[in-house]
Write a protein that binds this DNA or RNA. Structure first.
Lengths: 345, 345
DNA sequence: ATTAGCACTCAACCAGAATGAGTGCTAACA
DNA sequence: TGTTAGCACTCATTCTGGTTGAGTGCTAAT
C-alpha cells in the first residue's frame, strides 16, 4: 500500500487534531475538519489503511485513533524538510549580554520553558582541550592566596588557598611571571612531571607554593569537568498534559529531570548523534533516556566558538507542537551564534 | 478543660500513628497501641475532648481522627523542649572540603533530601555589606581585560570586558595599584561620585577604562545580589506522600519549588523571624509561603563567619518525622560550623 | 470513672444498566 | 470502481443502588 495524497492529508489532520485536544480522534471529527470533502465512512476506510500501515493506533476497539511513534516521525520529517527560515518573533527572548554565562543559561532555560510550555534543559559548554591561557596569583590576606585561572574559551575559575609562609609582593610578581611563561598554551595533560620539576627548580624558596598552585589548578579544572552544569526549567509544565501527569509517570519523569547524571547521558547521547542542522528530534522510544519513552525530546547544539559546545533540549509530550519548538530552537541558535560571535569579535 | 496526662499520651499516640500510616486513626487502634490500658470507648471519650480542644479533627463523621495544626504544634514544641543533643549518625553527610561553595551546597541539598526523604532547599550566603577587599585587572588578550573582584567573606567574582585601546603591562600595574589604594574597604554604596571623579583624575589617559571597570564591578555585585543562589533537591520526594501527590497539589508545590523568587521570600521570612536556636518549624498555614500550606517547613540558619548567613530548609508533609528532621538539621549545623571555623583558622 | 453494647454515619467498593462515541461491514449508488 | 448511508457491534465512561466495614456517639450497666 502507498501513502497517497489523501492519506497524507488525513494523517496530518489526525495528528494536528490530536495535538490540540489530546483525545483520540474519530472519523466524524476528521470529516468535518477537512472541508467535508469526504464522508466519515471514507475516512474510516482510509484510517483503517493508515492503521494497517502503522501510522496510527487505536487505544481500544471503540475509540478514535491516535498517532503512533511512526506517525509522529513522518510528521516531523515533513516539517524538517520544509526548512522555512522565517525568523520567529520570540517574546523577550533576546539573548542579552549579562555577566556570567551561568546566569545567561539559567535565564534562557526559564524563557524557553515559559515560551513553549514544555520543560527546558540547557547544558553549559563542554570543554575538551582546556588549554591554559592565563594564571594570576594575588594576595588577598596575609595567608590567603587567590588563584585565577583562564582557559581557552575565556572560562574563568577561582580558587582560594591558604599558605603557610608569607610572600612579598615582589616575590608574587616573579611567581606570576614564572607560571605564565611556563604554562600558557599547555593543556592539563601536557603539564607533566618534567614541566613541574623544571618549574619547581626555578621557583626556589617557594616551591611548595608552586606545588599547591598546580594541584589546585588541576583540581579546579577537573571538578568542573566532572560536574557539568545542566540547568532545567519548567519541569512542572508537564502537569499541563494529562497523558503525562498521572502520579506514576510524573514522578518518574520529574525525578529524571532532577538527576543530573541521567541528563548528562542525554546530552552525551545527543553529541554522539549529530545531525547536520544541529537539531535532533527523539520521539518516544527513540530517546536515549528510558524514562522519557512517553515524551518527545527535541535537542539543539549551540557553539561558543573554539569548539565549545552545549546542548539545549525541550522535553514535552509526544503531541508537542513540533513546528513551534523547532522554529524557536532555530531562532535561538541564530541569536546565540550572533551574540557570541559579536562578543568574540 | 485541661490537657491531663492521659490526654497527652493519647494525643501523642494518635500523632505517632498518623505519621506512620497517613490514614485517620480510630479509637480501637489507639486502644491496642497504648498497652490496652484503656478500652476503645474510653479513648473515644478522650478523643472527643481532644477534638473539642482543637488538637485533632475528623475528616468526616465516621472516620478516625487526624492531628490538626494545633496538634502538630503541641507535638513539635514538646520535641523542641527535650533538646537531646545526642549527635545523630548521618550517612555520608560529612561536609567535606570541596572546591567551590556552590558545589558544597548542591551536594548538601542532595544528601539532605535523600537522607530525610523530603524536599531540601539550601540558600547560599547572603551578603549585605559587600565591602570590597581586592580588585585585580589582568590582560587576557590584546583587547580583553579580566576583572577579578574579591569582597568581604572571600567571595570572588570575575568579569571579562573588551577594551578599545591597548594597555601596557606597566600601565596595568599602575591602574591596579590606583584602584586598590582608593577602593579597598569601601562598600558599593560608598563608591560615590566624589571617589569616582578623584579616581578618574588620577587615572589620566585611561579614565575610560576606570569607568568601565567601575560599572562592571558594580554590575557584577548587583547581579549577584539579585540572583541569590538557591538549590533545591529531592522535590520529587513529595510523591511518596499520598496526601501531597494528587496532580493539583503536587503541581502547585513543585512549581513553587522551581520558582526562585518565592523561595527567596521564604528565606527572607525565615531571617526575619529568628529563633535563638536558629531552627524554626512552620506547620501548615504558619508557613510564610502560601503554596506550602499543606506542608510543614523546617528551616535552619547557618553561618559562615563574618555575618554571612544562609538558610537550609526541609519541606515535607505535615506528618513529617520532626524528630529525625530536627536532629539531622542540628547535626548538620554543628558540622558546618566546625568545617567553616576550621577553614577560616 | 470506665466499659460494653448498640444504633447510626459515611467513604469505599462493587455490579449492573444506560449512554454515546466510534468502528467495521455491507449494500446501494453515481 | 470509488464513495457513501445505514446498521449492528464494541467498549470506556458514567450513573445508580446496594453492601461492607471502620468508626463514632450515646446510654446503661458495672
Amino acid at each position: 500500500m502507498e501513502l497517497d495524497e489523501r492519506k497524507v492529508t488525513i494523517l496530518k489532520a489526525i495528528i494536528k487534531n490530536y495535538m490540540e485536544t489530546g483525545e483520540p480522534v474519530g472519523s466524524r471529527t476528521i470529516s468535518k475538519y477537512v472541508n467535508s470533502k469526504w464522508s466519515s465512512a471514507t475516512i474510516r476506510n482510509e484510517m483503517s489503511d493508515l492503521e494497517e500501515m502503522g501510522y496510527i493506533v487505536q487505544p481500544h476497539t471503540s475509540a478514535g485513533r491516535i498517532p503512533s511513534d511512526k506517525g509522529y516521525r513522518f510528521y516531523v520529517d515533513q516539517i524538517l524538510l520544509e526548512k522555512d527560515n522565517e525568523v520567529m518573533e520570540i517574546k523577550e527572548m533576546m539573548v542579552q549580554r549579562m555577566g556570567r554565562l551561568e546566569l545567561v543559561l539559567k535565564h534562557l532555560a526559564k524563557n524557553l520553558a515559559s515560551n513553549t510550555n514544555y520543560a527546558a534543559l540547557i547544558s553549559g559548554p563542554q570543554y575538551h582541550r582546556n588549554k591554559l591561557k592565563f594564571i594570576q596569583l594575588s594576595k588577598v590576606d596575609a595567608h590567603k592566596l587567590l588563584i585565577v585561572t583562564v582557559v581557552e574559551g575565556n572560562i574563568v575559575k577561582n580558587t582560594m588557598v591558604n599558605v603557610e609562609e608569607e610572600i612579598s609582593g615582589e616575590e608574587l610578581l616573579n611567581l606570576n611571571i614564572l607560571l605564565n611563561t611556563n604554562l600558557n598554551g599547555l593543556t592539563i595533560e601536557e603539564i607533566n612531571l618534567g614541566v613541574i620539576s623544571r618549574l619547581k627548580e626555578q621557583a626556589g624558596a617557594h616551591r611548595q607554593v608552586v606545588d599547591l598552585v598546580l594541584s589546585e589548578v588541576a583540581a579546579a579544572i577537573k571538578a568542573d569537568e566532572d560536574d557539568l552544569q545542566i540547568y532545567t526549567s519548567g519541569a512542572t509544565n508537564i502537569f499541563k498534559y494529562p497523558e503525562l501527569s498521572d502520579s506514576q509517570k510524573a514522578s518518574e519523569l520529574l525525578s529524571t529531570l532532577e538527576h543530573t547524571e541521567t541528563l548528562q547521558e542525554l546530552v552525551n547521547g545527543v553529541n554522539d548523534a549529530q545531525s547536520e542542522t544541529g537539531i535532533q528530534v527523539y520521539i518516544g522510544d527513540e530517546s536515549p533516556v528510558q524514562a522519557m519513552k512517553d515524551c518527545s525530546v527535541v535537542t539543539a547544539t549551540y557553539e561558543l566558538g573554539e569548539g565549545l559546545k552545549g546542548t539545549i533540549g525541550i522535553i514535552g509530550p509526544k503531541r508537542m507542537d513540533y513546528e513551534k519548538v523547532l522554529k524557536t530552537l532555530r531562532t535561538l541558535m541564530t541569536q546565540l551564534d550572533a551574540t557570541f560571535k559579536k562578543e568574540e569579535r
